[in-house]
């Protein structure tokens, strides 16, 4: 399974960044091969609005099958959900591998909705 994880730095031991749209970078981790690549999200950090939407779109384009992050807002959720990407909300104390291990052992279930509100409607 190919996971995209929001992270703060380029290190396999780093922990999950709780923010999705305004995360520093994304790790693309393949649990089958153990391979990990790094993708900067700085363009989104500059976005005036809609950072979550653009990040979600980028994540879909990276070929992610699942996203691991702290909190995912409703707009990013809508994009990921449309693309069939699963979303896992995890503690920001977990490292990449710990989070993936817990997901694959079934102790963390995918989210069935946005867990934080974005702009209010």
């Amino acid at each position: 399974m190919k996971y995209v994880i929001s992270v703060r730095e380029e290190s396999i031991d780093t922990t999950v960044d709780p923010r999705f749209g305004r995360a520093q970078m994304f790790a693309l981790y393949d649990s089958k091969t153990g391979e990990c690549t790094w993708h900067s999200n700085t363009q989104n950090l500059q976005a005036a609005q809609g950072a979550g939407i653009q990040s979600a779109q980028n994540v879909v384009n990276l070929g992610a099958e699942a996203v691991i992050t702290g909190h995912c807002g409703p707009k990013a959720y809508r994009v990921l959900n449309t693309a069939g990407v699963k979303i896992y909300n995890v503690s920001s104390q977990l490292t990449i591998k710990e989070a993936v291990r817990q997901i694959e052992s079934g102790s963390i279930k995918p989210s069935d909705g946005a867990d934080v509100e974005g702009h209010w409607v």
Partner: peptide, 23 residues
Amino acid sequence: CANKCRYNAIAMVKGTPLMFNDM
């Protein structure tokens, strides 16, 4: 369209446009 929108109001997801009217 998604690429040129400065307000990130359109997402193109696997060939389908998603519109966010409030943006």
